[in-house]
């Protein structure tokens, strides 16, 4: 590729003619997307991309992995044309691996399993290939749990890992080194928790229904606790169902975006100096069912997966006005479910 561009990698559900993971080049000036290649993959439910290497990690959100009743993680390297080369994969010890997160130092990858409620840690070798799990952590037995499942995982700094547990209806924090439990916060009134984000000294836990975000002060190093400081909705009005899917913070830590399926919207929050959120805008998307979105590593734009519309759309991010502007560009991709975007290349 000669002109400046970004790559967006789009993971898809294996339906409606999907060809796996789609590599999309996005022109650095116009933000116009162009499909450049596809790579066969089964049910990519989540993607994670690093900054230091050209590595991409996919959560294999299926019921099988290499002939086992299992999920898995697969690592890829992308070249200058956006073509993916498989580095390797490893089983996840639980089915439907629904979340994957590369740690800051690109030394390991974490994954959460929707079924079984387990999470795993895979060391990476020098090429970025995931090695067999060095840690598999099972949930506690909860007799009245309606589902034994996890929904999200994310490293909290280098020492901790946070998971969104449906088994416990809680945000649970573990030690990254040995998987021992540190603390948890049980969400009141049994919401359906889904996603997790970390920014500065705060941890943000998002509910799928109702679409609330819980903001916690991270005091793990001080006294092993997380303190709830705010709860805020992703919508201005109350909805019967939200189906909120994802929250992500812009790289400059000024904004948080939240996608809500039932409203077909992206909400824009200002992140205040103390970590509190202030809802600035709710943008209606040009399609249905925003399952995930990815923010470019320079924070210029976001790429949203419109799962039911079978397309992605692109919005410019204005950090000053806390606003999104639709570029008008869309690209057809069957059942897009996960997005990861590079920086400018």
């Amino acid at each position: 590729m000669n002109t400046a561009h970004y790559f967006a990698f789009i993971g898809t559900n294996s339906v409606r003619g999907s060809k796996g993971i789609y590599s999309v080049s996005i022109d650095a000036e116009t933000l116009r997307p162009t499909l450049v290649s596809t790579h066969q993959a089964y049910n990519t439910g989540a993607l994670s991309i690093g900054r230091a290497h050209n590595w991409l990690y996919a959560a294999n959100e299926g019921m099988t992995f290499q002939g086992l009743a299992d999920g898995g993680v697969t690592g890829y390297a992308y070249d200058g044309d956006g073509v993916l080369t498989k580095l390797g994969g490893a089983r996840s010890h639980g089915q439907r691996t629904c979340a994957v997160a590369l740690d800051e130092g690109a030394r390991c990858v974490y994954g959460a399993n929707f079924y079984e409620g387990t999470w795993a840690k895979w060391p990476l070798d020098e090429t970025g290939a995931p090695q067999p799990a060095s840690l598999v952590v099972a949930p506690p037995e909860v007799p009245d749990a309606f589902l034994k499942a996890l929904h999200c995982i994310l490293p909290i700094g280098e020492k901790y890992v946070g998971v969104i547990s449906l088994t416990e209806c809680a945000l649970v924090v573990y030690r990254a080194e040995d998987g021992s439990r540190v603390t948890r916060y049980v969400f009141p009134n049994r919401p359906f928790p889904r996603y997790l984000e970390v920014c500065g000294s705060c941890i943000y836990a998002m509910m799928q229904d109702p679409g609330d975000i819980y903001v916690f002060k991270n005091r793990l190093d001080e006294n092993g606790t997380i303190d709830l400081i705010q709860t805020i909705s992703v919508q201005r009005g109350k909805m019967a169902h939200y189906g909120t899917t994802t929250i992500r913070v812009t790289p400059d830590h000024r904004l948080m975006l939240a996608a809500t399926r039932e409203a077909n919207s992206l909400s824009v929050f200002r992140i205040l100096p103390d970590g509190w959120l202030e809802l600035a805008d709710v943008v209606t998307l040009p399609g249905e069912t925003p399952r995930d979105f990815g923010i470019s590593q320079d924070g210029r734009f976001t790429v949203t997966c419109l799962q039911r519309s079978n397309e992605i759309c692109i919005h410019r991010i204005d950090p000053e006005k806390a606003a999104l502007t639709d570029t008008g560009y869309k690209l057809s991709i069957p059942s897009p479910a996960a997005a990861a975007v590079t920086g400018r290349l």
């Binding site: 299926g62 099988t64 002939g67």
Partner: peptide, 14 residues
């Protein structure tokens, strides 16, 4: 066919 099958197992189950 054992290895070939593994590629399509999941899609086929869905």
């Amino acid at each position: 066919c054992a290895k070939t099958r593994q590629v399509t197992d999941g899609m086929w189950l869905e």
